[in-house]
């Protein structure tokens, strides 16, 4: 089950700097000039160790309750070859995509007015706090109760989950805009549309990216949970079906596919972020 954020507001990571700093930390040269093993190698060793532990435990238990990694990988391959993986992920991603578009449509203007007005910031704080702290399970149950089985529930739920992350981060981005640049725009008599395009948008883009990445991770998990209760396709639905048929290997295979998809999407967003912030890279 997805647990909601426990903070008073959705977390706001410093824009752009988090990934940059993390990368810098990872590549910091050692004082003695020695080179350690690559991070990829360490991650690979860690992954292989986890798989080995899993295989050993499965071999000891020797029960259907815990299939071996080889069985699960076999099922993953079956789902990919049969096309079931793509059709169900496509169903989930379409729902998240629509929900996310709705969240952006609501979160961007809400965040913008929150960043510009103290009144609006106070006005929207409580609703966003509530949205950000409703348990994922409650979203799933309400989605089923209100919209029944189908696509609408997961779409609305993923939108509701994503809105607070996007709005709060956009508000932070707007607040971060350098007042000196705004005065420069006034002195040169720039049109509001130019100020929006050339000052506000670039300034808040870093914050929007952070919000989108958090929101996507949250929305994706809650959407899958909602599919478990009230959908007729999608990854969450397939996990529930495997559970009902007591096919543990299938459940683990779908979960594995889910995690792989999340990692790929997250990496994709990170690559887009790197391209968008090429001007920062130029500074190095």
């Amino acid at each position: 089950m997805t647990s909601p954020t426990a903070t008073t507001e959705p977390p706001v990571t410093p824009p752009g700097q988090s990934s940059l700093n993390a990368r810098l930390r990872g590549r910091r040269p050692r004082p003695d000039g020695a080179r350690g093993p690559s991070r990829w190698l360490v991650s690979l060793v860690s992954l292989l160790a986890a798989l080995a532990t899993w295989a050993v435990v499965a071999w000891i238990i020797d029960d259907n309750i815990l299939p071996t990694p080889f069985e699960v990988f076999g099922r993953v391959a079956d789902f990919i070859v049969s096309g079931a993986a793509f059709s169900n992920f496509a169903a989930s991603i379409v729902k998240i995509g629509i929900g996310f578009a709705l969240a952006l449509a609501a979160g961007l203007p809400i965040g913008f007015v929150m960043g510009r007005s103290r009144f609006m910031s106070t006005y929207f704080s409580m609703p966003l706090f509530v949205l950000g702290n409703v348990p994922g399970l409650a979203y799933a149950v309400f989605g089923l109760a209100i919209f029944g089985v189908g696509a609408t529930g997961p779409i609305v739920v993923s939108a509701l989950v994503a809105v607070p992350f996007i709005a709060i981060n956009v508000a932070e981005g707007v607040r971060s805009v350098d007042g000196g640049l705004l005065r420069m725009c006034r002195a040169f008599d720039r049109r509001p549309v130019d100020v929006m395009r050339h000052v506000y948008l670039p300034a808040i883009t870093a914050f929007v990216f952070v919000g989108v990445r958090y929101a996507f991770a949250m929305a994706w998990k809650v959407e899958a949970l909602t599919e478990v209760f009230g959908a007729d396709n999608g990854v969450g639905f397939m996990i529930r079906r495997a559970y009902q048929e007591f096919k543990v290997a299938d459940m683990l295979a779908w979960t594995m596919l889910f995690v792989i998809a999340m990692v790929l999407i997250e990496r994709g967003l990170a690559r887009i972020e790197t391209r968008v912030f090429a001007w920062r890279k130029e500074l190095a």
Binding site: D178, G180, L181, R183, M184, A187, H198, V199, P202, W279
Partner: peptide, 10 residues
């Protein structure tokens, strides 16, 4: 201005 006030992303 006293400081250049250039758009850093341009």
């Amino acid at each position: 201005f006293q400081d250049p006030r250039l758009l850093p992303w341009r």
